[in-house]
Simulated scan of single mutants.
Amino acid sequence: MSSLNLRRSVRAIILTSDDHVLLCRHAVTGPPAGFVWAALGGGIESGETPLAALRRELWEEVGLALDAAPPHVWHQEVVRPGHPPGFDGAINDYFLVRTEVFVPRGTMSDDELAAENISELRWWPLPDIVDYRGPDLFGPRDLATLLTVLVADGAPATPVSIG
């Protein structure tokens, strides 16, 4: 049996004191095609630590500078079709970044964000995610439940394995 080639990524749950979370809208080429609202972040480059990758991704995508190491809250392993060519799936590690609302503008141009299939950045109030009934999806799919627990209980002592 061959081993799987999984893309290692870091993601930031950027959460304000009034429980708004910053998400990016990704175009998914499918199947099925559509849009997914997901936490910001991206792949860990060769020789890079997860924290260094998280710092780089947040600076590039939204202009947020991380000083301290945020708590690691969720761990996800996904193996299914639809990942970038050469990968069988992904390992996503999610970190909780507490901040106040800011205007997201990183070092990446709109064209560079579009090349990464990012079409929009939005601050979502938690109730709007819980009550959302539109055509877009959230990533992870149970984001509303996961965020509700995270807001109620705070960062877990060890990362929670999520589906």
Rank of each mutant, 00 (worst) to 15 (best):
G41H: 10
F87Q: 04
D88E: 10
A65H: 13
A65V: 11
P71F: 08
Y94I: 00
P70A: 02
P104D: 09
G86N: 04
A69F: 15
F35A: 10
T99H: 06
P84I: 09
V103A: 15
A53P: 00
S46P: 12
W37Y: 07
I91F: 04
G63P: 01
G63N: 09
H83Y: 09
P104R: 03
H75A: 08
L51P: 04
G86C: 03
E100A: 09
F102N: 02
G86F: 00
V101A: 07
L96K: 05
P84A: 14
R80S: 07
G89E: 00
V78G: 03
E61S: 05
N92D: 08
E57W: 15
G34W: 12
V36H: 12
G89W: 02
Q76L: 06
H83L: 05
G42W: 12
A68N: 11
A38G: 15
R56S: 13
L40E: 07
V97C: 07
D93T: 00
P71G: 05
A65R: 13
R55M: 11
I91M: 13
A39V: 10
T49Q: 03
I44D: 05
E77S: 10
I44Q: 02
E100C: 04
V73L: 10
R55S: 04
L40S: 03
H83F: 10
V78C: 07
D93F: 00
A65Q: 13
P71K: 02
A90N: 04
L40V: 11
E48T: 11
R98F: 08
P104K: 04
F102K: 06
W59I: 12
P71L: 08
W37F: 06
H75E: 09
P84E: 12
F87L: 05
V73E: 04
V78Q: 09
H83V: 00
V73W: 09
V62D: 07
D67N: 13
G34K: 13
E45A: 13
W37R: 07
G82H: 05
V97T: 00
P71D: 08
V101C: 05
F102T: 00
L40W: 10
G82W: 07
G89F: 05
W37C: 02
I91S: 03
W37H: 10
V79L: 02
R98Q: 12
N92E: 11
V103E: 15
A65T: 14
